[in-house]
Simulated assay, not measured.
Amino acid sequence: MKARWDIFCSVVDNYGDIGVTWRLARQLVVEHACDVRLWVDDLRAFERMCPDIDVHLAQQWQEGVDVRHWPSEWVAAPAADVVIAAFACQLPPDYMEAMAERQRTPLWMNLDYLSAEEWVVGCHRLPSVKFKGVQKYFFFPGFRPGTGGLLREAGLLEQRHAFQQDVAAQQHFLQGLGVFPLAGARLISLFAYENAGLARWLDVLSTDGRATHLLVPEGRILGDVARWLGVEGLAAGAVHQRQALTVQVLPFVRQEQYDRLLWCCDFNAVRGEDSFVRAQWAGRPLLWHIYRQDEDIHLDKLDAFLELYTAALSPAARAALVSLWQAWNTEGDMAQPWKMLMEHWPEVLAHAERWCLEQGLQADLATALVQFYESWI
């Protein structure tokens, strides 16, 4: 019999949490024949990346996944064989009672946030708290051997490579979004949180000797882009040009389309967790806007990733990349770090592809979760 999985997602920053759990749920169904219920407390946020969602339904099927609205007033539901609390969300008390009442208690996991910090390896798959005999385990995605790996669908890297070799396919995709860049223009995608450091970066791009076409999916950074352009507001479809820089706002698209957008671009600025991982699978240089946390502890996570990611770069290229990422995440001056990065562009570009292929040698997150369940039973 197929194992039954329950994944609980409490939407915090609109897209990151649901982005990860939606990809995971679909992959468990398609590649591992799991029976998956995805409990989501905010269907309107979910609707942005899955427009077929009916936000008024308590239960519906989407791409083989049983999607359930997670109501504030819990309605009794039987516990599954595997229970995932995504990003440390708190399960409904009545559901926890249902877990404890099962003849065979479920495998209960806290799917934690992605981190490159060394301590993650030591904590991965360790037991956590118990609830009436039901043991919870830590499960950490990660970049190092000994972690749960990253979300990666079967054949993803092969699909990406074929797409990037097919200029006609890229042009067709971009034209479907209404994007018609100038010949030879640098393509950059920008998906980020609010950032006061954006203006200096856009200043540099606009005065560069090479044309840049900046593609900005709808999101929180639009206010900063609008202020730099000197316009009242921006919406999908807007196109503005200032000297060498063309700024175009794109609609929020499905995850598969966003993946292809990243594959088309020469450089990708991303945020949070889901888009961060997808930018790495694009095999192109990237800039990560990490989610800000109290007391700036997010900067420790940023430094841990940079230490791992830049280890194989030359000292000069490493310094350029590190200074750019640190400036972006502290709202510092982006002008000089960007110019430094351009001086080492061939090395940074080749490194992005190597890093992608190296990460692709590890088991993907969905497979690691299934393997843990199989070893647990």
Score class of each variant (00 low, 15 high):
296 D>K: 14
358 E>D: 14
162 A>W: 02
314 S>L: 06
2 K>D: 12
312 A>K: 14
304 A>Q: 11
208 D>G: 07
200 R>L: 06
338 W>Y: 14
192 A>M: 14
163 F>L: 14
112 D>N: 07
259 D>W: 08
214 L>M: 07
298 H>P: 12
300 D>A: 12
216 V>K: 09
65 V>N: 08
199 A>C: 09
132 K>S: 11
151 L>S: 03
87 F>D: 10
191 F>Q: 08
104 R>I: 12
80 A>E: 02
51 P>E: 05
199 A>L: 04
238 A>I: 00
190 L>D: 10
212 T>H: 12
377 I>W: 07
215 L>N: 11
99 M>V: 09
165 Q>L: 15
249 V>R: 04
120 V>M: 02
220 R>N: 14
349 L>Y: 09
184 G>M: 09
354 R>S: 14
216 V>I: 14
261 L>E: 05
329 N>S: 06
333 D>Y: 05
116 A>D: 05
131 F>E: 03
250 L>K: 01
332 G>T: 04
272 G>I: 07
210 R>M: 12
267 F>E: 06
355 W>L: 15
362 Q>P: 00
213 H>W: 13
159 Q>K: 13
19 G>P: 09
226 A>H: 03
128 S>N: 13
165 Q>K: 12
132 K>D: 10
53 I>D: 02
377 I>H: 13
233 G>L: 06
183 A>Q: 14
220 R>P: 05
307 E>L: 11
166 D>V: 10
85 A>R: 01
151 L>V: 05
34 C>W: 03
77 A>N: 00
218 E>C: 13
291 Y>P: 13
286 L>W: 12
314 S>N: 07
52 D>H: 00
102 R>I: 08
120 V>W: 02
59 Q>P: 00
6 D>A: 15
356 C>G: 03
87 F>M: 09
125 R>L: 09
55 V>K: 09
12 V>G: 04
359 Q>R: 08
349 L>N: 05
165 Q>V: 03
148 G>C: 05
308 L>W: 15
108 W>N: 09
217 P>D: 13
147 T>E: 11
175 Q>W: 03
5 W>P: 12
112 D>M: 08
168 A>T: 12
53 I>L: 14
11 V>P: 08
346 P>K: 10
152 R>T: 07
344 H>S: 07
216 V>N: 12
71 P>G: 07
110 N>W: 06
154 A>P: 03
64 G>P: 10
212 T>D: 08
48 R>L: 14
346 P>R: 09
24 L>C: 04
85 A>Q: 10
143 F>W: 13
150 L>M: 10
102 R>E: 03
8 F>D: 02
75 V>N: 05
364 D>H: 09
41 D>T: 03
243 Q>I: 00
107 L>V: 13
15 Y>D: 12
342 M>E: 15
25 A>K: 03
159 Q>M: 08
243 Q>C: 11
309 Y>P: 04
19 G>A: 03
124 H>W: 01
195 N>R: 01
196 A>W: 00
212 T>V: 15
207 T>Y: 04
270 V>L: 03
37 R>Q: 15
318 R>M: 03
105 T>D: 00
354 R>A: 15
179 V>A: 05
205 L>T: 10
38 L>P: 13
348 V>S: 05
128 S>E: 12
94 D>M: 04
8 F>P: 01
332 G>N: 04
265 C>L: 06
228 W>M: 09
315 P>H: 07
116 A>S: 11
99 M>L: 11
204 V>M: 06
261 L>F: 09
289 H>W: 00
